[in-house]
Design a protein around this nucleic acid. Structure first.
Lengths: 402, 402
DNA sequence: CTATTTCGTCATGGCGCTTAACAAATTAGT
DNA sequence: ACTAATTTGTTAAGCGCCATGACGAAATAG
């Protein structure tokens, strides 16, 4: 609902169209696409008034986008207002599709999303990837991508790009996995191992999850902090509708913020990091369960049943989260904190202590804490949508690739 | 006739002009100004190749800027290269000037900076403002502004705007001081109390200090964390050359990041905030001095003399800073941390423990810690330069105001 | 049925950048 | 010293893109 009229690519910053007439044209095509995409079926006249151009100009822009197959004309609107009714425009359901893929520790998933945001094809393979060498895993992923692309093409779509979410740190080149501890992958360039011919983007699953929250969340603001937990604790910072990536691409590592500086040692070399108190392993252990065997799902189950040990463990994890988030809120003054991933399912038992800690320690107007509606679907959807956004951000480039 | 003059906040140089031909022209004028300003005397041909426009176009842009008094022609260059020598262009030394002002706890200061970045006039009044009512203080400030403007005008400059740095939180309207505890000012709109006729911007001194670091620092990157201390501890986050303000304008409040969650209570309501360990009062007390009577300058003096109590106090403050900064580095992955304000003078005794703590707790490629070259001059210069930047960012708007 | 309102399109025009050509000013080569 | 080559800055013509204003089309209001 927030107007996503940002000019720059969320996925590839640095790229700016030149300030020449062609660049202006391309930016205006993008503004039309964004407006129609965000505000549903719209007439040319409405689009014109939204983006501040004249009806005549918008007409020519729309013509071009229809010829490229990016917009569709639905026919006359039927409103009760006086005057000739406009002709409703929508983004095309038969144009480009974003292919999203997720390499999880326990599964592989691929989906295709059209410009309207609808998932049009998907494929999943269950089974652990922990410790498997990259080649066979990526081979299976490529096969799933092939299936999904074929299915999308049967529906009249064509793939505009492939975005892959991985559970680990990714270099700023958006292709190289620097380290994915739970897969045991290091310094691996995914480019040569995945289907060529499709523009490829690789990113951290927490980053894609936060973008999904930004693009698909119900009332997600343009400035928020996204906290997700799978095995470790991941975070992402979104400022003014843009994901903050950091110098090395490692921003958002909330899991290693010090909570109790003299606390237990952490694998990262520090002491008392948040992960020591609110990470999966720590919480399972505090609840009297066995990490590695039992999983997060069990926690939600037990907590719902009223298990006091589990509830206490979650309460304490919430307190630790609250302390770490206090620092983040003081530093960033975000509009909201969104709990995603596994935290979403555990939120009912984390939130009270988390919010109490946050309220106690922050003086100002505070900061809303919300729970993700997307849950574990976030990274996959975010990946697919990142491709769709790239098309919206530069429709002229996509049109050339038909 | 012309687009309405949009008030620019110092940290938002990227404000969008409409994507119409006039907007394009204005952006290109800005690109010429920025290029000439940043890379010294340049010929039209060089500017053209830098910004990707043709020589012909740049010629007309330059003509317009010279007519407006924003650029000057220095005459033919004399390089050893073949071909006709270019005509060197510089930003004008007689055009608009940025008027910067600082309301300190113990002084008032005003200066005028020309487009070349040179300080062309200044005025200072010493004497405490602590607890004085706003009217007389602002009256004195207005008088100093009058002096500086008059002196600048004698040198052929005209004031393009006034930017005021205050030691406190400022609302996002850039006019209202929400609270300045050391002045005991609250919810005060400075607009009616300062000379009218000049575009006014008010901001936190730490924010202006970090912008000064960004614009004037020797090798300051575009992504860094600025930490300064006057009475409290202020911080500012610069991402991709832009100051991160936060939803309420309160971002960067490093002073209240929890360091020891169960530590002593803080005025903010929390416990164990950084300010309890590295704030002026805390450090003075830990050094065996009397807060309120002794000041920061004394600490540097004593430390240089080898006072062990003072050195220990500073070492411990450095450790606390290191813990708080570890969290910030994990969250933001900045390229550098810059110590400014009073911390710059104390850096020799803070740095060792600070860097040790940071190195111990962060695994990745780490983050350089540097010391500001500007020191206490930062906020004043940043304020004046913010006006200059606004002129560079939209020279057409400034030209209209001549 | 007429007047009014709004939509989409068309022809015209203005603005801004590019292209191409040219004179001016310097260096390199003979 | 003289010519050729190179680079700069300017000029005129051209084209792309958006704005303006007028028009027919399609609805509602009276």
């Amino acid at each position: 609902m927030t107007a996503p009229l940002q000019e720059a690519h969320p996925s590839s910053p640095g790229r700016r169209l030149p300030d020449t007439q062609q660049g202006m044209r391309r930016r205006n095509l993008a503004r039309v696409m964004h407006t129609v995409s965000a505000e549903g079926p719209l007439s040319r006249a409405t689009v014109a008034s939204r983006i501040g151009l004249t009806r005549a100009t918008v007409s020519t822009l729309v013509d071009e986008l229809i010829r490229s197959g990016l917009l569709e004309e639905l026919g006359p609107e039927r409103p009760g207002r006086v005057g000739r009714p406009g002709s409703a425009l929508t983004v095309s359901g038969r144009g480009p599709a974003g292919i999203g893929a997720e390499i999880g520790v326990d599964h592989l998933a691929v989906c295709a999303v059209d410009l309207r945001g609808a998932v049009r094809a998907r494929a999943v393979r269950h089974g652990t990837n922990r410790g498997r060498p990259p080649q066979p895993v990526l081979g299976e992923l490529a096969a799933l991508v092939g299936q999904v692309v074929a299915e999308a093409e049967r529906e009249g779509l064509w793939p505009a790009g492939l975005a892959v979410a991985v559970p680990g740190l990714v270099a700023r080149d958006a292709r190289t996995v620097v380290r994915a501890p739970n897969l045991d992958w290091h310094d691996l360039d995914l480019g040569p191992l995945l289907p060529a011919g499709l523009p490829l983007t690789v990113d951290n699953e927490a980053n894609f999850g936060s973008l999904a929250e930004l693009w698909l969340g119900e009332a997600t603001p343009r400035d928020f902090l996204h906290v997700s937990a799978e095995i470790g604790i991941g975070g992402a910072v979104v400022v003014d509708g843009r994901l903050l990536r950091g110098t090395h691409g490692f921003a958002g590592e909330l899991g290693h913020v010090p909570v109790h500086p003299e606390g237990p040692e952490c694998a990262c070399g520090g002491r008392g990091c948040l992960e020591q108190y609110a990470g999966e392993e720590a919480v399972l252990r505090a609840a009297g369960l066995t990490p590695g065997q039992d999983r997060v799902e069990l926690l939600a189950e037990r907590a719902a049943q009223g298990d006091t040990d589990v509830r206490r463990a979650l309460r304490e994890a919430g307190t630790a989260l609250g302390i770490a988030l206090t620092g983040a809120v003081n530093l960033l003054d975000p509009q909201a904190i969104v709990l995603g991933g596994a935290l979403a399912a555990l939120a009912p038992w984390l939130l009270p202590s988390l919010e109490r800690e946050l309220a106690r320690r922050t003086a100002g107007p505070g900061c809303v804490v919300t729970v993700s509606r997307l849950g574990p679907e976030g990274p996959l959807l975010g990946a697919a949508h990142s491709v769709v956004r790239a098309v919206l951000d530069d429709p002229a480039a996509a049109a050339e690739r038909v």
